[in-house]
Amino acid sequence: MKIIVLNQSEINRIFSMEEAIQADKDALKLYSLGKSNVPLRYNLDVPQHEGQSLYMPGYVADANALGIKIVSVFPKNIEKGLTSVPATMVLVNSETGEVCSLIDGTYLTRLRTGAVSGAATDILAKKDSKVFALFGTGGQAESQLEAVLTVRPVELVKVYDISPERAKDFAERMTVLFGEKFSVTITAAASAEEAVADADIITCVTTSSKPVFDGRLAKKGCHINGVGSYTPAMNEIDEYLITHADKVYVDTRNGVLNESGDLIVPIQNGTFRAEQITGELGEVIAQKVEGRLNDDEITVFKTTGTAVMDVVTGQRIYEAALEKGAGSIIEF
Score class of each variant (00 low, 15 high):
N12S: 13
K302R: 01
G34R: 04
V46M: 14
K29V: 04
Q144R: 04
L111E: 04
M174N: 11
V60W: 01
D310L: 07
L54Y: 04
T137R: 04
V73G: 10
D310W: 08
Y31V: 07
Q22Y: 09
V92M: 09
L40R: 11
V176R: 13
I21N: 07
I285F: 12
D24H: 10
R316K: 15
D26S: 13
A120P: 02
N235Q: 12
Y240V: 06
A233V: 12
T88V: 15
T96E: 10
K69N: 08
L217H: 03
G136W: 00
E236Q: 12
G215C: 11
R112A: 04
F213I: 03
T83I: 12
L281C: 05
F135P: 05
A20M: 10
G81Y: 05
L145P: 02
G305V: 11
V116Q: 08
M234I: 03
A197H: 13
S16E: 06
E19R: 12
Y31L: 14
Q268T: 11
D296W: 06
F272C: 00
V300M: 02
L30N: 13
V227K: 02
H244S: 15
V265S: 08
P39R: 07
S36I: 03
D200P: 01
K181Y: 08
S36M: 09
T121Y: 04
G81R: 08
M17G: 01
K247C: 09
I21S: 05
P39Y: 07
N254Y: 03
A120G: 14
F332E: 12
I330L: 15
N294S: 12
R173I: 05
S328T: 14
E79R: 13
T278R: 11
E10S: 14
P153R: 10
V184R: 06
S191L: 10
K220A: 14
L156F: 04
A192Q: 14
S84T: 14
V90C: 12
G327W: 08
Q48C: 06
T175C: 06
D251I: 02
G325D: 09
Y42P: 02
R292M: 09
A192T: 13
A188N: 00
M56G: 09
P211T: 12
N64H: 14
S101D: 05
K130Y: 02
S72W: 01
N77Y: 03
N235L: 06
E290S: 15
L91Q: 06
G282L: 04
S208N: 09
K247P: 00
I224M: 10
I264N: 03
S9L: 12
I162C: 04
T306F: 00
A65L: 05
R152L: 11
R273A: 13
A20V: 09
I21E: 08
T231D: 10
